[in-house]
Nucleic acid binder design. Structure first.
Length: 182
DNA sequence: CGGATTTGACCAGCGC
DNA sequence: GCGCTGGTCAAATCCG
């Protein structure tokens, strides 16, 4: 049960020949001066593809949920030295799948779900359950093609993968990578 | 019983 | 300034 094969049932069957699984860089992220496009490289390194792996995410705790009596809202995600706000690089996969939960080998805990505009399907927010790992991902099914789920990763894992999923590695080799505005 | 999920509320950013 | 929207928290609930 390392990798759910039924997840890619539609992918295996419905894939004609070209791009059944896409990867793209979310526009507006990862193009800040300090950020490099190592998010996907780190991710692919986890998958065992080939890449270097750094871990210089700007992790910030203490999110905007300080309601009630907890009032230490001092730093948050402030701008850095007069620069614009620095966001973490986010990388989105588009996977042809019948189910939303794509087991990529990590343990994820769902922490939210929101209905997004121009999309009839809700978006789910997940966080890596590994201690000290603040990698997040969000899963969203496309309205125009409900057979496609879009998984957006944010941050990099600073710990080894917890499950073996060589199938996913194989799929990664077939995956098209493109950076476009979307 | 402990960890994961659900779900409504809260908060911040942005556009008008 | 206000309302919309996306993102997150956290209490309640579920589930093994």
């Amino acid at each position: 049960m390392s990798f759910k094969m039924e997840n890619f049932e539609g992918f295996l069957h419905g894939s004609s020949s070209s791009s059944s699984l896409n990867l793209r860089n979310s526009h507006g992220y990862g193009e800040v001066e300090g950020e490099r496009d190592n998010g996907i490289l780190g991710l692919m390194a986890e998958m065992g593809v080939s890449a270097v792996k750094k871990n210089d995410l700007c992790i910030n705790k203490g999110l905007g949920g300080t309601r009630g009596e907890n009032e230490e809202k001092t730093d948050k995600t402030k701008k850095k030295g007069g620069n614009k706000k620095m966001r973490k690089a986010r990388y989105a996969f588009q996977t042809r799948s019948q189910v939303d939960i794509l087991d990529d080998g990590y343990r994820w805990r769902k922490y939210g779900q929101k209905a997004v505009k121009n999309n009839k399907f809700p978006r789910s927010y997940y966080r890596c359950t590994h201690q000290g790992c603040n990698v997040k991902k969000q899963v969203q099914r496309l309205t125009e093609d409900e057979g496609i789920v879009e998984t957006t990763y944010e941050g990099m894992h600073s710990h080894p993968i917890q499950k073996i999923s060589d199938n996913f590695e194989h799929i990664l080799t077939q995956m098209q990578i493109y950076t476009s505005s979307f």
